[in-house]
Simulated scan of single mutants.
Amino acid sequence: MERVKEKLSALRTEADVATQRAEEAEDELKKISRELTAKEQDNISLQNKISLLEAEVERAEKKISDAKLAKEEEENTKNTSEGLLRKVALLENELDNTEKNLRETTEKLRQTDVKAEHFERKVQQLEAEKADLEKKLDEITEEYNKTKQNLEDTLKSFDDL
């Protein structure tokens, strides 16, 4: 009987551990979902920034061409042109970095989705294991009760003799 109690306790402990792991997996999934939402908002922000930067690049290129056409302001045009070209290069670098970050974020999102699917499968597997263990516990309890009844009947028959 003590062994059954120990096994029952162990099964309960395992079930508690499985439940805790499932809850942790759900918490992790929620955390990942929040991070995904934040990353999507970052993506939208970065896309808007890209649009603004592209518009700014177009304006800068127009300024450069206008400056080249104005001969009397040739020296100013040269300085402005160099400054604008540096700014364009910086903007292109920033655009490249933004695109790189977008690719990395997309990859992280894909990996997060894979992890979430893995945890969902693990939760399902643990739930199935829990159901099997509960079924086995019921069978063992029933067998124990039958054995106990047989023992009591045998002891009673010995007492009657």
Results as ranks from 00 to 15, higher is better:
residue 132 D to I: 15
residue 107 E to Q: 15
residue 150 N to W: 06
residue 80 T to N: 15
residue 50 I to K: 07
residue 155 L to K: 12
residue 156 K to F: 04
residue 27 D to R: 14
residue 112 T to L: 01
residue 11 L to H: 13
residue 138 D to S: 15
residue 55 A to D: 10
residue 18 A to V: 03
residue 125 Q to E: 13
residue 26 E to S: 14
residue 99 E to K: 12
residue 130 K to D: 06
residue 30 K to G: 03
residue 6 E to H: 10
residue 50 I to T: 04
residue 63 K to H: 03
residue 118 H to P: 01
residue 23 E to H: 09
residue 71 K to N: 07
residue 119 F to V: 02
residue 133 L to M: 15
residue 31 K to R: 10
residue 121 R to E: 13
residue 66 D to E: 12
residue 34 R to N: 08
residue 53 L to Q: 07
residue 69 L to T: 07
residue 79 N to Y: 13
residue 3 R to N: 14
residue 44 I to K: 14
residue 15 A to S: 13
residue 136 K to E: 14
residue 120 E to C: 07
residue 38 A to I: 08
residue 27 D to S: 08
residue 38 A to R: 03
residue 149 Q to A: 02
residue 18 A to P: 05
residue 63 K to L: 07
residue 66 D to H: 01
residue 22 A to V: 02
residue 132 D to T: 11
residue 7 K to Y: 06
residue 35 E to R: 05
residue 68 K to P: 00
residue 92 E to R: 11
residue 80 T to G: 12
residue 6 E to L: 07
residue 46 L to Q: 05
residue 4 V to K: 11
residue 128 A to K: 09
residue 141 T to V: 10
residue 60 A to D: 11
residue 100 K to S: 09
residue 155 L to P: 03
residue 92 E to H: 02
residue 158 F to T: 10
residue 100 K to V: 03
residue 142 E to D: 12
residue 29 L to Q: 04
residue 77 T to P: 00
residue 139 E to H: 08
residue 148 K to C: 06
residue 144 Y to S: 07
residue 66 D to V: 01
residue 140 I to H: 04
residue 151 L to C: 05
residue 128 A to G: 02
residue 95 L to E: 00
residue 77 T to M: 11
residue 57 V to K: 01
residue 32 I to G: 12
residue 126 L to T: 03
residue 34 R to W: 09
residue 2 E to G: 08
residue 157 S to P: 04
residue 102 L to A: 14
residue 31 K to G: 14
residue 107 E to K: 12
residue 107 E to G: 04
residue 102 L to R: 14
residue 92 E to S: 11
residue 69 L to R: 11
residue 10 A to E: 09
residue 20 Q to T: 05
residue 138 D to L: 15
residue 145 N to A: 11
residue 132 D to L: 11
residue 58 E to A: 15
residue 114 V to Y: 07
residue 67 A to T: 00
residue 46 L to D: 11
residue 157 S to R: 01
residue 78 K to H: 02
residue 128 A to L: 02
residue 2 E to S: 13
residue 37 T to A: 06
residue 69 L to V: 02
residue 90 L to M: 10
residue 20 Q to E: 12
residue 77 T to Y: 03
residue 35 E to A: 09
residue 29 L to Y: 00
residue 132 D to K: 13
residue 135 K to F: 05
residue 65 S to R: 10
residue 62 K to L: 05
residue 140 I to S: 07
residue 149 Q to R: 11
residue 126 L to P: 00
residue 42 D to N: 08
residue 104 E to R: 00
residue 75 E to A: 08
residue 13 T to H: 07
residue 69 L to W: 01
residue 88 V to W: 00
residue 101 N to E: 09
residue 144 Y to L: 14
residue 116 A to N: 12
residue 3 R to W: 00
residue 137 L to C: 06
residue 101 N to D: 12
residue 72 E to S: 09
residue 107 E to H: 13
residue 103 R to M: 06
residue 36 L to P: 06
residue 113 D to M: 12
residue 41 Q to G: 09
residue 108 K to A: 13
residue 59 R to I: 02
residue 37 T to Q: 10
residue 64 I to N: 07
residue 28 E to V: 12
residue 60 A to Y: 05
residue 2 E to A: 15
residue 157 S to N: 03
residue 13 T to R: 01
residue 98 T to E: 07
residue 81 S to R: 10
residue 57 V to I: 15
residue 126 L to D: 05
residue 53 L to N: 06
